[in-house]
Design a protein around this nucleic acid. Sequence first.
DNA 1: ATGGTTTTTACTGCGTC
DNA 2: GACGCGGTAAAAACCAT
Length: 331
Amino acid sequence: MQQRTFTEHNTATKTKQSSPSEQTTEDETTQETSCPECSGNIQLDAGEHACVDCGLIVEEEHIDHGPEWRAFTSTEKDSKSRVGSPTTNLMHDNGLSTNIDWRDKDAYGNAISNKKRKQMSRLRTWNERFRTRDSKDRNLKMALTELDRMSSALGIPKSVRQVASAIYRRAYDEGLLPGRSTEAMISSALYAAARQEGLPRSLDDIAHVARVERKEISRTYIYMKSELGLAVPNPTAQEFLPRYSANLGLSDETEQIARDMLNKMYEGGHASGKAPTSLVAGAIYAASLISDDRYTQAEIGDAVDVTAVTIRNRYKEIHDVYMSSLGDISF
DNA sequence: ATGGTTTTTACTGCGTC
DNA sequence: GACGCGGTAAAAACCAT
């Protein structure tokens, strides 16, 4: 079942990529259309669609948080997804599907024969099946494309993607989709899946690459979680550590010290109520002071998405806890 | 809605390069 | 003078009630 949809998705991908026009216009960082003012070229650069000739900025809102700047895996897929379908709407069939009246009358209102009636009944059944299957497939395909795009931008492994798509499928089957954007739903599924698999991403991380606001993702996520009864463990700071330390290029030693600190914090019950990311940031900073590969608070804050103030606060606490636990290590 | 907690924003002074 | 760092107050965001 799952397998089937994946292969379908792949073939669709292939056909789309073989279209020559899309291949040629797609570049890593630029995407061109024409300016409504002077019909010059529009370039997408750093999230702004700006006209090359007159400087007019079109679609300031339509920021494509494309993965170029952070894609460590298969970028081919991403370039495809950017020309893909829009993210909202398209929930149903856009009202273009066939409807067969349930009344067994012909166009003039006369009753129809027994044989016809049976035929119509069969037609209704199949029409219904095809229609729902079609729209489901379309929706799923779109969602999976989106999932792929976000996942590779965040470097999320396949196992998590599979869990995410399973969650999304369930959400679809339970009828949670209508009234909500696909994008928000698939983002939530990804968020939940990453946490379930012990490779959590912060809501901010997801929101960075998603095409909807963080707020909406979190709303959708809460809704989805309660409707599906998902058991999503709270992420621990330790789970965040490897990724951020890799991003920063910490030495193994430093990372180990940071992990130690985090363990101490959790054991001592000093971690409750604190955002896991803030703890990692504080621990990394503290650890970077002990071992000598120093990082500034700003650097760490940038990487972990936490302010320097928060780092200082966590750092102070960690310092106290770690000091008392080790005796007289000073830093 | 409310109140308590955490995090962010904005601003400060200090020391160092 | 720019930069990193430490602190503070107040606003904003978050959470449980």
